[in-house]
């Protein structure tokens, strides 16, 4: 494995000193994407004020170096943005902000984008509002339920 040399300095920086790790209690929106079977799960917490501005973003991630770095960067990018602006934080934007990713890790940036969308969807659903251009998250974390059952000790 040669990921340590394939990753950009920025990726390694966000991996070794990830920004905004943690949970937000009573978050305005929470989104969990990915699945444990494939080795990546991202959970994003958003605290959104009454003007639909993201005050705070936190994450927890199970995954590789790129998964951690893209989560960290995604939280940085959405902070201070309105929900509409946050929708424009695409996987490409996350990747560019990290000075690129190795080709096999591009899916991590997609997961980061999905995590933002899933958290926004949760926020929109909870508050009965619709955000133009936001689609419901794809539910592919079914296996995690089996995972917990398997883990029951």
């Amino acid at each position: 494995m040669s990921q340590a040399t394939e990753y950009s300095k920025k990726v390694m920086d966000h991996f070794s000193n990830p920004r905004n790790v943690g949970e937000i209690e009573d978050a305005s929106g929470v989104g969990t994407v990915g699945n444990a079977k494939c080795g990546d799960i991202m959970r994003m917490y958003l605290d959104i004020d009454e003007n639909q501005v993201i005050r705070e973003a936190k994450f927890k991630t199970f995954g590789c170096g790129a998964a951690v770095a893209t989560s960290s960067m995604a939280t940085e990018l959405v902070k201070g943005k309105t929900v509409r602006e946050a929708l424009e934080v695409t996987n490409k934007a996350v990747m560019e902000a990290l000075d690129g990713l190795p080709p096999v890790k591009v899916h991590c940036s997609l997961l980061a984008e999905e995590a933002i969308h899933a958290a926004l969807w949760d926020y929109a659903t909870k508050n009965g509002i619709s955000i133009e251009g936001l689609k419901p998250p794809v539910d592919d974390i079914d296996e995690t339920e089996e995972f917990y059952e398997m883990q029951g000790e």
Binding site: V21, E23, M42, V68, Y148
Partner: peptide, 13 residues
């Protein structure tokens, strides 16, 4: 940092 661990602990694991 792991959401899996978070859930495991919350489930009283």
């Amino acid at each position: 940092m792991s959401p899996l661990y978070e859930d495991f602990i919350k489930k009283g694991g």
